[in-house]
Design a protein around this nucleic acid. Structure first.
Lengths: 192, 192
DNA sequence: GTTTCTACTTGACAAAAGGCAAGAAAAGAA
DNA sequence: TTCTTTTCTTGCCTTTTGTCAAGTAGAAAC
């Protein structure tokens, strides 16, 4: 038993009903991982092999648009699973990068290990599905916000729902995540 | 063996590698369903119990914003799985409605039947996951388009990638799906 | 046929957001 | 500390999109 995996064990228990022993066995398949600030956890054109529980820190997903501009598509905060769904599950080259915005620690498993867990621990299948569903719902909410809210409303929502992002992430990344330019976000922020 | 389920069988085979017999057995768990134009396949505040393969027709997902306006969040075309992920998988009341935009036919199963299939046909688990991943990717692409493209670019893309929508769906639904007002879409369309 | 909807268009003006460039402020490096 | 780089702000002007309201076109109802 690895005492240090407590956060991961609690996270698993929070997602699915499972007894302590089994949650521990699952957690013990995961490997401790550190990522230094600014380092890339996933590079574009690589096939992602990381299903990663982020215990501490912040990460972002970004890619380049047709003009070569960086677009921040997602920002992950602690106590979440971080992975590039397309590349990881479809075993194709990633179009996006995942970068640590602060020093990060957490636990990872490979595609093979994940599938072995699905096989060995049927309860864990529900975990896998629940994570997919959870992230999918978050993506749909973002779509809704982009259609129905102004940039200012999206900013206010981020401010109240995930204030830790505002504290640690440069404005330009937040701006592109919210779908505006950094000038616009700077003006929005000034208003308040 | 039900000859009429050929489209569904082919769809399953297209998503996962599977032999004909097993694909047929899976397909035979599904129930033929018709939905008349304009009818609601799912009503808000109901718990969705439909995992639906749409063989022919068009459907849309919509909900009401805070001002009571209808927002079309998604449009489904034929040869796709239609379901409200949050309500169906989390067994909670749906916040959105699903409506037939034309007369529709297809095959449905319930949540219970789906889970039974996952249990009885391990290969079908990959199908379930592949569908989730497929829809998730589509949602992420929509997010990207909303952040990086103008309404006109989004319209042009829809025009070339899914022209059947333009033919059969009223402009106001397409407009809200693209994240613009119907006036704006009308002007965009005029340009070309 | 006429009426009644609904779908769509269009004009005039307002609001939201972007582009660009200059400069201030803050954070890091030496 | 000073220098350098990055981050953020701001002004000016343009583009995009929204709002509201009036009007047309077409389909469906009577």
């Amino acid at each position: 038993m690895d005492k240090k995996k407590k956060a991961l064990i609690n996270f698993i228990k929070q997602i699915i009903p499972i007894n302590g022993t089994e949650a521990e066995e699952i957690a013990n398949t995961f490997h401790f991982t550190k990522i230094k600030k600014d380092n890339l956890f996933l590079k574009e054109n690589e096939i992602s092999d990381d299903y990663f529980y982020l215990e501490k820190g912040l990460m972002r997903v970004f890619l380049y648009d047709l003009d070569g501009n960086e677009i921040t598509m997602d920002i992950f905060t602690e106590n979440n699973i971080v992975f590039e769904i397309t590349s990881f599950f479809n075993r194709v080259k990633s179009e996006s990068n995942i970068q640590a915005l602060t020093d990060c620690i957490g636990y990872r498993i490979s595609y093979e290990e994940l599938n072995k867990l699905f096989h060995d621990k049927p309860a864990f299948r529900d975990f896998g599905r629940a994570i997919l569903v959870k992230e999918f719902i978050a993506s749909k909410k973002r779509n809704y916000a982009m259609i129905n809210q102004t940039a200012e409303q999206r900013y206010q929502h981020l401010l109240t729902s995930r204030p830790e992002i505002l504290k640690h992430v440069p404005l330009k990344f937040i701006a592109s995540y919210l779908g505006v330019t950094d000038s616009t976000l700077s003006r929005i922020r000034k208003k308040k």
